[in-house]
Design a protein around this nucleic acid. Structure first.
Length: 738
DNA sequence: GTGGTGTAG
DNA sequence: GGTTCTACACCAC
């Protein structure tokens, strides 16, 4: 270990170790709540420490391996590795105990541990979905959740801490000892407000971890500190499934213990090389390096960032991540040398991305194709070309229009020809397609009936993914070999296994022979639907289509009167991922209905439509949780939001009661989004009206970071040049000066 | 807006 | 150190 400056605790620290000056947290610093606490705990003050934030970094243990084990409990307790192509990208702790290391080749890993079990992990769908469930769960604690990676989240729990401090007063700490470890085994002082806050933060972190464990079956490590940088750096001190707090005075130790500057978040191999060229290879040398030297090498901005990082300083707030700004899919291979082959691979990538776009609901306006050339057995750097997607193509994305796939492939091939002269022998080893510049569908489109008829329900979206994951009837499963846990569940309600497998060519023609269509169906309406829904309609037994997941198909089938007479069907309310008895965040949702990625399922249990009377959905056997979804409790017609919105059709169906109120969190909010024309809406079939209401409700958690619902503090941040909520997770970003 | 590069897990 | 599959930020243009 190296050190610089004084090791003696009593000695004065260099400048950069002085307590943070007041006001460094800008607009969020001087909160009345904090001042109130200060009055109560006046004798606990440390200079500047009242302004500290309490940040939790949660890092899930061997995330991919854990997800695989949840999906296949037989893997539990056995050495397990997840491979992508020939590379072992991660492995569980059982495998690590046997000497397996991640990011080794599969061959090496097998040599080291012949009993190692391997699963394929190229298709990230199930990891991505589980990752968003974790984020949604953490958002139940605080809206200030920032995703750093699939398996990492930051939470700013300062306000929660302050609330507890206020509620419990000065005795709070005596009732709430530190949960987990204290970095450096330091003593937590009752008389230090910063210590007390971190201790309460540790309790919150423990609650979060326990919630993630009990409801999703995932364990992880947490770090609790006064900023994101330190929280991240301290979180892995004790692994697995443990947590650590970093007291302010331990910051120096934490940094000094790094044996390599590459351990500093944000310094990768290239930067490390450049720094080494300056003779900077240790943390100490970096700390002592004159600003001018760093600025000359890295530029002013990067140099200043680096200087802060190497001192453990970070004043960038936790910023809710929102939906991703781009969706990409890529595949690598040994060799691809023909245009036909490229077109096929590009088609697969685009088909897969169309499924994700369809779920996402936004439309991309830019497409980028990236490839990696191989010349004389040497891989070159990636090279990419991008172009805008013409509006008429954008319009069709997500509508199920069969021509869009071809048009996008044609666009991508144009980009390909910009990089590769196909008349000359070529050899590429990677293809990637990225859709970016994602925008919400224009309001005008949303207000058309066509939009309603072509937008899938969230439940259908998820079923779509299930279908693709298990390889049957898939629109696009270029790499999916595994069955996600949700695909296992979807199997219960499966309706497409009989469908013939779809080739890229088949996506161009979505027409089904008329004899396949059930009686009474409107062919025009049917033909506007996405293929998956068509498949579902065709293959679903009519009388079983009682859950909301089939509402769209119901609306195309039977008369509304027929549906309203149906008996409640609770048989669909099965726990998800229940093979190992794990509680699941979606356990209370009927098996037909799975909320979309990013939605907070607990906050929006679904109601099953007018055919259901009052319905209580019990938790699974292990559950202490018992959410209920009491559909159609009485509510005065005058109070009904649907009356307010002027929706007679729906009122008729529901007996003048709102479709879902009472225990359903969203029930009282069942008014139309402002962008939706009430008259147009009222002309829709009742089932579609309800489906849309459920859909909008389920999309609420997403919109909160994208629309005017953004918390005031983020608006403030935006005005002072903070990254927008949609900006991302890169470590570099949060090192940027505020 | 485009293309390349660097970083992260 | 590169291997894989993403996602993002930054910078120069």
């Amino acid at each position: 270990m190296e050190s610089c400056g004084e090791e003696d605790e009593e000695a004065p620290e260099p400048d950069w170790w002085l307590p943070e000056p007041r006001g460094r947290f800008g607009s969020v610093s001087c909160k009345p709540a904090i001042l109130g606490v200060r009055a109560v705990h006046g004798n606990m003050m440390r200079s500047g420490s009242d302004l500290r934030r309490v940040i939790v970094h949660l890092d899930l243990d061997c995330f991919y391996a854990q997800v695989e084990t949840i999906c296949n409990p037989e893997l539990r307790g056995k050495p397990l590795g997840v491979q992508q192509k020939n590379l072992l990208i991660t492995c569980n702790y059982e495998a690590r105990k046997l000497g397996v290391k991640k990011t080794t080749t599969v061959k090496e890993a097998k040599e080291k541990c012949p009993e190692l079990l391997l699963v394929k992990g190229e298709d990230l769908t199930k990891y991505r979905e589980m990752s968003y469930k974790v984020t949604a769960l953490l958002e139940e604690f605080t809206p200030l959740v920032e995703r750093l990676a699939l398996d990492e989240n930051f939470m700013d729990v300062t306000e929660m801490v302050e609330k507890r401090l206020e509620e419990w007063g000065k005795d709070a700490f005596s009732q709430m000892p530190v949960s987990g470890h204290v970095y450096g085994n330091r003593t937590v002082s009752l008389h230090d407000l910063a210590h007390v806050k971190l201790a309460i933060g540790s309790q919150i972190a423990a609650e979060m971890r326990e919630s993630v464990r009990s409801r999703l079956g995932l364990t992880g490590c947490a770090g609790i500190a006064s900023n994101k940088l330190l929280a991240k750096m301290v979180s892995g001190t004790f692994r697995p499934n443990q947590q650590t707090i970093l007291l302010p005075e331990s910051r120096r130790d934490l940094i000094a213990h790094l044996d390599n500057i590459k351990k500093l978040p944000g310094i990768g191999s290239k930067t490390a090389q450049r720094l080494a060229a300056l003779g900077l290879t240790t943390i100490c040398s970096l700390q002592m390096c004159p600003a001018a030297v760093l600025e000359k090498e890295l530029g002013v901005s990067a140099a200043r960032t680096l200087q802060k990082v190497c001192r453990g300083e970070d004043d960038v707030p936790v910023t809710p991540s929102g939906p991703p700004q781009s969706l990409s899919d890529e595949d690598s291979f040994k060799k691809c040398s023909s245009e036909v082959e490229v077109e096929k691979k590009v088609g697969e990538l685009i088909a897969s991305l169309l499924v994700r776009l369809y779920k996402d609901g936004r439309k991309p306006h830019t497409i980028k194709l990236t490839l990696r050339k191989c010349i004389t057995n040497r891989w070159l750097n990636r090279e990419g070309r991008q172009c805008p997607i013409p509006p008429h193509v954008v319009q069709k994305i997500g509508t199920g229009d069969s021509s869009v796939q071809n048009q996008l492939v044609a666009l991508a091939m144009k980009l390909f020809h910009k990089m590769i002269n196909v008349k000359v022998l070529f050899h590429i080893t990677l293809l990637s397609v990225c859709f970016s510049n994602l925008k919400d569908a224009p309001a005008s489109a949303k207000q058309s009936i066509g939009f309603y008829l072509t937008r899938p329900s969230s439940s259908n979206c998820n079923k779509l993914v299930h279908k693709t994951e298990d390889g049957s009837g898939e629109l696009a499963t270029p790499k999916g070999q595994e069955r996600g846990c949700e695909s296992l569940l979807a199997e219960r309600s499966r309706s497409v296994t009989q469908m013939p497998p779809e080739t890229p060519d088949e996506t161009r023609g979505l027409e089904f022979p008329a004899h396949l269509l059930p009686a009474g169906i409107d062919h025009d309406v049917f033909n506007q639907l996405p293929r998956e829904i068509k498949e579902e309609i065709i293959s679903s037994p009519k009388k079983e289509s009682s859950a909301a997941g089939n509402v769209l198909s119901q609306s195309l089938f039977a008369s509304q009167e027929e549906q309203s007479n149906k008996a409640p069907d609770q048989t669909n309310c099965a726990p998800l991922c229940s093979r190992d008895g794990q509680r699941n965040i979606f356990a209370l949702v009927p098996s037909e209905i799975v909320p979309p990625c990013g939605a907070s399922p607990r906050s929006a249990p679904r109601c099953l439509g007018p055919q259901h009377g009052p319905l209580e959905v019990a938790a699974n056997a292990s559950g202490s949780e018992h959410l209920t979804c009491t559909a159609f409790k009485s509510s005065s017609p005058l109070q009904s939001p649907f009356h307010q919105a002027g929706i007679p059709e729906l009122q008729k169906q529901t007996g003048d009661r709102s479709p879902c109120d009472g225990d359903w969190k969203g029930g009282s909010k069942g008014v139309l989004p402002s962008s939706v024309d009430a008259k147009t809406f009222s002309e829709l079939p009742a089932e579609i009206q309800k489906e849309l209401l459920v859909e909008w409700e389920s999309r609420e958690p997403v919109s909160k970071t994208r629309t005017a619902v953004t918390p005031t503090k983020f608006k403030t941040k935006k005005t002072v040049g903070r990254p927008s909520p949609q900006q991302s997770n890169s470590l570099l970003r949060y090192f940027k000066p505020a």
